[in-house]
């Protein structure tokens, strides 16, 4: 019995980690900043490729993953400066620009790195409970997802930067008038967002096939989580991931992956219909 219970928790943790890690970066870039970043998947891919490249050079996995996230973050700052900065008042154009960027990046990777890269293998470690065996690394992923949420809470709720960033997102002109350097705030926020996307790729790199289009497998889940979460990163994304993970886990377990995926998307449609502002609109109102 306890094996079944643990199995339920493990499956929930697994889907939850996938949703949180793939959505955290987008929650900042899209949820807070309002940039429809179609290249989100490519920042994830970037994190994965940098990780594998560094590990192949002999860098220990954990350090490679951190460096990969930092790399994705720095590239994000550069992309913000060169491209995204011009589109803050034109969200639909930002969609086109970042989509174009995504196409350029995937095709360039295909041409430069090739169509497939050899994987690095998941860190050893599995444990058995009852008749089931589990991969330890999947629990590490869950731990990382929780840590990312905690980190975001601290950055955006407890630091001076967080206060100014939230002020800038709410009313850039007023923040600027009060002396905030909004351009820099936007660049750093975008960098944190893409850095988290890179972290997602870095963490999942050992468990997946690396191809230039691998980001696409994360993109649907990440957008869906952010959209039903609503504008508030912490009060929206986390409950959205819990909610979607429960639905998907239950349906996956009883009816298989197809129904799991369909069920999750149907739930998303219903939520958007009932709560167009996302889950956080309800939670924030309650909180007041």
């Amino acid at each position: 019995m306890s094996a079944e219970l643990f199995s339920l928790f493990y499956q929930f943790a697994d889907v939850f980690a996938f949703l949180i890690l793939s959505a955290a970066g987008l929650a900042i870039v899209f949820g807070m900043m309002g940039v429809i970043n179609m290249a989100h998947g490519e920042f994830i891919m970037c994190g994965a490729y940098v990780t594998v490249g560094l590990v192949n050079l002999g860098v220990p996995l954990a350090i490679a993953q951190i460096l990969a996230a930092v790399t994705a973050g720095l590239i994000g700052v550069l992309v913000e400066f060169l491209v995204v900065r011009r589109f803050y008042k034109r969200p639909l154009d930002s969609l086109l620009a970042t989509w174009g960027l995504s196409l350029i990046v995937t095709q360039s990777m295909l041409l430069i790195v090739g169509s497939a890269v050899r994987g690095i293998g998941t860190p050893e470690g599995s444990f058995a409970i009852g008749g089931y065996t589990f991969s330890t690394y999947r629990l590490v992923l869950f731990g990382c997802a929780v840590a990312v949420l905690a980190g975001l809470y601290i950055i955006f709720m407890k630091t001076r930067f967080g206060v100014i960033a939230r002020a800038t997102m709410q009313n850039a002109a007023m923040a600027k008038a009060l002396g905030a350097r909004t351009g820099r705030i936007y660049a750093i926020s975008f960098g944190i967002g893409t850095g988290l996307a890179g972290l997602c790729g870095a963490l999942y790199a050992p468990t997946m096939t690396l191809i230039p289009t691998m980001g696409a497998t994360f993109v649907v889940e990440s957008f869906v989580t952010v959209v039903i979460g609503g504008a508030n990163v912490l009060l929206g994304t986390a409950p959205a991931a819990v909610f979607l993970a429960m639905i998907r886990m239950a349906l996956n377990a009883s009816y298989g992956q197809i129904i799991g995926q369909i069920g999750m998307l149907v739930a998303v449609i219903l939520i958007i219909r009932v709560l167009p502002e996302g889950l956080s609109s309800v939670l924030v109102r309650r909180g007041r």
Partner: peptide, 9 residues
């Protein structure tokens, strides 16, 4: 689909 924890169980 790229995640298989449930399938494995």
């Amino acid at each position: 689909v790229s995640q298989f924890a449930q399938t494995i169980q």
